[in-house]
């Protein structure tokens, strides 16, 4: 029981850490993309597509942590 509680705490911490990391990176990306779009509205479509791609790759890292946590949960 104690081990399970410790494990739950660690997983929450891991998820929070991963979320902070990718949220910071995604915020930077979105900020830059939006100011680029404001400066050049005619290129907004291309910038948006590229931004989506970049965001997807950052998002994936959080989701890898999420999946890893679930795999470990199956073991515990």
């Amino acid at each position: 029981m104690m081990e399970a509680a410790i494990f739950a705490g660690i997983t929450i911490f891991a998820m929070a850490l991963a979320a902070i990391g990718s949220a910071t990176a995604q915020a930077r990306t979105a900020t830059e993309a939006m100011s680029a779009m404001a400066r050049q509205p005619e290129a907004a479509g291309q910038i948006q597509t590229a931004m989506m791609l970049a965001l997807a790759f950052m998002e994936a890292l959080t989701l890898f942590v999420f999946a890893t946590v679930f795999v470990l949960m199956g073991i515990f």
Binding site: E59, A60, L63, F64, F66
Partner: peptide, 13 residues
């Protein structure tokens, strides 16, 4: 791997 994991983890999450 990452393509499938991203979609699956999002929906499952």
């Amino acid at each position: 791997f990452s393509l499938s994991l991203r979609l699956f983890a999002n929906v499952f999450g």
